Simulated scan of single mutants.
Amino acid sequence: MATAFQLPHDGADPARPLRIALFSGNYNYVRDGANQALNRLVAFLERQGCTVRVYSPTSDTPAFEPAGTLVSVPSVQIPGRAEYRVALGLPERLKRDIRNFAPDIIHLSAPDPLGHAAKKLGRALGVPVVASVHTRFETYLEYYGFGWLRPAGENMLRRFYAGLDAVFATTSGFAETLREQGIVEHATVWSRGVDKARFNPGRRSAEWRWSLGIKDDEAVIAFVGRLVLEKGLDKVAAAVTELKARGVPHRLLVVGEGPARERFAAQVPDAIFAGFLDGDRLPRAYASAEVLINPSTTETFGNINLEAMASGIPVVAADASGNACLVENGVTGRLVAPDDIAGYADALTLYLTDPAARAAAGAAGLKAAQAYDWDEINGAVLARYRQLV
């Protein structure tokens, strides 16, 4: 089950700066929701006077500048997914570096060889070891023809998370899923926030839509994310194909890049591919659409849902733990059974053709997004650290 945060016990020094060693499989070499959350956490911790040393694979072309002090660890490319790397563990020189750093707490964010080695070292050092669960790694196998390996993957996860001082899950629903799978017995919720100054309805731009060939009276479905199979690209393609068969006017706007782009583009030949967008360009894309589609079932939180809500547009998403925690069915959008293509088409049709329903859901989502504040959320993680230290 998920547990709530509490203030540190009597006797803990709430003002003492902590030294935190964070271990990540991808801290900044490819941009994704998980490492964006980790970087925000580290930046917050350092603003509070803590010192964070991050151990992760690196590349010569990082996606963004990292927060904290980043230490490169040995790694190799993942076969078939060369943009990602897997950390190989902790050589003796890095173990010495960690001992010299003398962390108060160790935070693991991936169940890779690096995470396993750091867990073992933390136990030897006698410091608390915690982990955060950012994605449903065990489900990825099914998208690449290795579904038969899922039981073995789940057993590995059980061993990795066993005996830790705390495990952070992104939502209470995801924490319950982990408990039902027997992977984690108890989890504390570390949610996500949204930058409301960056993502808001005021970012909508008719001029940008015109530049893409979108007319004022055309309704746009946005898909935002890395173009990889586990994001549900096949379901997006099937849903818009169904809309076309029904004669429902729409434009599909795809924001993101990834190794599955060529395959996806062949499935949705009429789509507009805007590529990877960052800075002010990403919130402009959200606000310039009428509805977001997110059929992924591998998310543990669904950052794109929250960003769309803050941008004032409805969300049509798969009814899975990472989406159901944010999207209130019939209020801020629609939740659809993951494989129900007709259900996706029905929900999209509603928001594409009914401006009043679209406006009501967008307003409800905008209101709900106001509760997700990054500093408050990350402050709770620091409070939990202090409890354990």
Results as ranks from 00 to 15, higher is better:
D97Y: 08
T349E: 14
L352Q: 01
V129F: 01
V254K: 04
A206L: 14
F64H: 09
W374H: 08
A380S: 14
I341H: 06
W208E: 09
T300V: 09
R158V: 03
L125D: 04
D319A: 11
V194I: 10
D216H: 11
Y84L: 15
V167Q: 01
A219F: 01
G89R: 03
D104K: 00
R47S: 15
G312C: 05
F64A: 07
A4R: 11
F44S: 09
H250E: 00
A317E: 04
I214H: 02
A318K: 08
V327T: 07
D270C: 03
T139N: 13
Y344L: 12
R47Y: 06
N303W: 11
A245H: 07
Y161A: 03
V129H: 00
P66K: 09
V189E: 06
R93L: 12
A357W: 13
T300Y: 07
G333R: 03
A266V: 06
R136M: 12
L253H: 00
Y55G: 03
D270E: 15
A266L: 10
I272W: 04
V220R: 00
A369V: 08
T58S: 12
L233W: 01
K95T: 14
R158D: 08
G333T: 06
D216Y: 04
E65Y: 14
G333I: 03
F146A: 15
V331K: 14
E180M: 11
G232C: 03
P249D: 01
P57V: 12
F5A: 14
F223I: 02
L282F: 00
F5G: 11
E92G: 11
A342P: 05
S321P: 07
A222Y: 00
Y161Q: 03
N294I: 07
R226F: 02
L38Q: 15
Y140M: 08
V130T: 04
A363L: 07
Y286I: 03
N100I: 02
I105K: 00
E154F: 02
E242C: 05
L90D: 05
A152T: 10
S296Q: 10
P66H: 09
A245M: 03
L45N: 04
R251W: 02
S296C: 11
G333E: 11
A369R: 00
L277S: 04
R209G: 04
G365M: 07
R123G: 15
N329C: 12
P113V: 09
Y372G: 03
G322V: 01
A2P: 10
I313N: 00
R16Q: 10
R226A: 04
V54K: 01
V130L: 06
S56N: 07
G365Q: 06
Q77Y: 12
A37H: 13
R53P: 07
L253I: 04
Y344G: 04
D104A: 02
